[in-house]
Write a protein that binds this DNA or RNA. Structure first.
Lengths: 315, 315
DNA sequence: CTGTCCTGGACAAAAGATTGACAAGACGGC
DNA sequence: GCCGTCTTGTCAATCTTTTGTCCAGGACAG
C-alpha cells in the first residue's frame, strides 16, 4: 500500500462530503461526536474540513453499516480492516446463497434495494444473483418496470450527484447488458415476426433503456434488432432498411435536453419516410415533446404502454 | 476451501450472522435457546456477538438441516462431524458427466472471413454462429489470437476508413461483448484465485480488447474483474483497492496517440503505488512506449504473452 | 442578507432481547 | 392408515439499547 495520493491537498466542507458519501449531515456529525469515526480538521472558525481519505473511510463505513454491522462496532476500524471485512462478508454471503433456501416472499422494492447495495459495493456476482432471483420470482413486465427501471434510475441519480463512482456505474451497466442480452436475443429464432429496430439517437450514450425496450418488444411478439447506442440518423435509417423493419423505437435518457437532438430527430423522419412508425420513450422524451410532435413520433410513457402501442402497428 | 482463517477478532451482530448464514433471526435465537447449538458471547448490554467459528458452525448446521436431518439431532455435533456428514451426502450425490470434445481441424482465417461477411451484412445471428463454431473447433488461445483479434482489427480498420458503417461496428461490438462475457464470468467461482483488474484508460472507448484480456487471464488461473472502459486513474485505483487486486491490466487501442493518456498513466502509477504490477497491451501501446517505460508498466505484445507475464506476478 | 455550518439537547425509529404461544409437519405406536 | 405427541419454524407483545433525525439559537462566509 504505497503512496496514496488523495489526502494532501483537497479538503472538503461537510456539505460536499455528505453528497459524496450519501450520508446526511447529521449522521456525519453524530458519528464524529459519538464514535469519533472520522475527525476532520477544522478551520480557525470551527468549520469541518474533510480529507479525501476521510471521505473514503466514510464510504467504507457506510457500506459496512448497510451490510448490517453496527456503527459502534466498526467506527474505530482502519480503512484496510473495513475493506477486508467487506470482502469477507461478501464472500461469506455468496457462499451461503449458493445453498439456496426456500423463497419467502418477493417484494420488487426489495430487489431494487439489494441490487443497489450490490452496485454500491461493486459486487458483480451478487448483482447477477439478485437479478436472477427477481427474474424467477416476477413476471417479465414487473421485472422490467418495478425492478430494473427503478434500479437504473436510482443508479443514474446517484451517479450524477457523485454518490456513486464511475466504476460502479460501469460495472452495473455491464451486468445489466449481459442480463438483458439474454432476453433480447434468445438463441434460436426462426423469425416470421415483424422486425423492430431499437437504438438510441446520436448523443445519447445510455443504452440500457433501449435494451429494456428490445426485450419488452420481444415479449410482445416482435423481433427486435438492437443496433447499439449513439447512432446518427442516417445510420439508423440504414439499419431500418437493411432489416426491412416495420417500426423503430428510440430511447432518450441522457442528456435530458440536447439541441442537437432535435435536428437529429428531424433528419431521422426525413430519412425513413413520412409514414414510418417511430416510437420514443425515456426520461428525456418529454423535454423534446414539441419536436416529437412535429415529426409525428409516438410517445410511449412507460414500458407497459409499449405493447399496446406496437400492436397498433402490427395490425 | 483450504485457507480459511476464522479471524478471532471479528465478532458479528446477529443481523450480519443472519444474512451470512441465511437463517432468520428467530431461528438463530430459537436454536440457541432450545439446543444451545451455538452460544454467542454477549456485550455488556446483552446483545449477541457471534464469532467466525459460530458462523461456520451455523452454516454447517443449516446444510445438515436442509438435507433432511433434524436440528435436535445435529445441534450438538462438532463442526468436524458436521462437515464430514456434509461431505458424505455430497459424495453420494455427485454424478458428474464427461463432455466429449471433438476437434475437427479448421482454418482460423476462414472464420475471420465468414465473421467479417456476417458483420458486413449486419447478420447478427450468423456472426454468433461463426463465433460458436470457432469456439468448439479451436482452443481458447487460438480462438482469441487467430480469430477474434484479426477480426476486430479488420473491423476497426474498415470502420476508420469508412468502408463499414457505424451500425456494423456497433452490432459487432454487441455480439462480441456478449460472447466474451460468457468466458469472463462463468456462473459461480469460489475465488481463491488472485484478482486481476482489467479496464481501459480514460479516453479509450473500445472495450473488446480488455474483454479478451479478461478472458485470457481467466484461462490462466486468475480471477479477472472487468471494470468497463474509459476510466480515470483515480477510479481504477479505487477498483484495485476495493478488490484487493494483485495486478492491473490495461488495453490501449484507440485513439492510438492521445496526449491526455500519458498524464493519465502517470497518475495511475501514482495512485496504485510504485510497486504494483501494471500490464499494458493493445495496438496503441507502442505509441506510448516512453511513458510506459517511465511508469514501469510491463508491455505485453500479444495475448499469448499474457499468461507468462502474469505468472511472474503470481509467484 | 442569505445560505451554510456549529453545538447540544431531545426525540423517534430501528434493531435486539425475552417470553410465550401456535400451527404445520414429522414421528411413532397401534 | 390413523391418531396423539414432538419438533420446529414463525409470530406477537413488550422492553431496552442503539442510532438516525430534528430543532433552537447562534456564528460565519460570500
Amino acid at each position: 500500500m504505497a503512496a496514496k495520493k488523495p489526502s494532501s491537498v483537497a479538503r472538503h466542507p461537510i456539505g460536499v462530503v455528505s453528497s459524496r458519501t450519501g450520508l446526511p449531515l447529521d449522521v456525519l456529525r453524530a458519528w464524529e461526536r459519538r464514535y469519533a469515526a472520522v475527525v476532520p480538521t477544522r478551520t480557525d472558525t470551527g468549520r469541518r474540513l474533510y480529507s479525501d481519505l476521510d471521505v473514503e473511510r466514510l464510504r467504507a463505513l457506510r457500506v459496512a453499516v448497510d451490510q448490517g454491522r453496527r456503527i459502534s462496532d466498526v467506527a474505530s476500524l482502519s480503512l484496510a480492516k473495513l475493506q477486508a471485512l467487506q470482502q469477507e462478508d461478501e464472500a461469506s454471503r455468496a457462499r451461503s446463497r449458493r445453498i439456496a433456501r426456500r423463497r419467502p416472499k418477493a417484494e420488487p422494492a426489495e430487489y431494487v434495494t439489494r441490487g443497489f447495495a450490490a452496485v454500491e459495493s461493486l459486487d458483480r456476482d451478487q448483482l447477477v444473483r439478485v437479478l436472477e432471483e427477481a427474474e424467477v420470482a416476477l413476471d417479465r413486465l414487473s421485472l422490467y418496470a418495478d425492478v430494473l427501471v427503478p434500479l437504473l434510475r436510482r443508479i443514474g441519480e446517484c451517479w450524477r450527484e457523485g454518490t456513486l463512482r464511475i466504476v460502479n456505474e460501469h460495472v452495473a451497466t455491464d451486468v445489466f447488458r449481459g442480463f438483458l442480452a439474454r432476453h433480447v436475443a434468445p438463441p434460436d429464432a426462426p423469425t416470421d415476426r415483424p422486425r423492430l429496430i431499437v437504438t438510441t439517437a446520436a448523443g445519447q450514450l445510455h443504452e440500457l433503456g433501449a435494451l429494456l425496450v428490445a426485450a419488452t418488444a420481444r415479449d410482445h411478439g416482435w423481433e427486435p434488432a438492437y443496433l447499439g447506442p449513439n447512432l446518427p440518423a442516417e445510420e439508423i435509417a440504414a439499419g431500418v432498411e437493411r432489416y426491412g423493419a416495420r417500426a423503430l423505437a428510440l430511447s432518450l435518457v441522457y442528456p435530458v435536453v440536447d439541441p442537437r437532438l432535435d435536428a437529429e430527430l428531424e433528419n431521422l423522419r426525413h430519412y425513413v419516410g413520412s409514414e414510418f412508425p417511430i416510437f420514443v420513450g425515456g426520461d428525456a422524451a418529454r423535454a423534446h415533446a414539441e419536436t416529437l410532435k412535429a415529426i409525428r413520433a409516438r410517445y410511449v410513457a412507460s414500458l407497459a404502454d409499449l405493447g399496446p402501442a406496437l400492436a397498433g402497428v402490427a395490425a
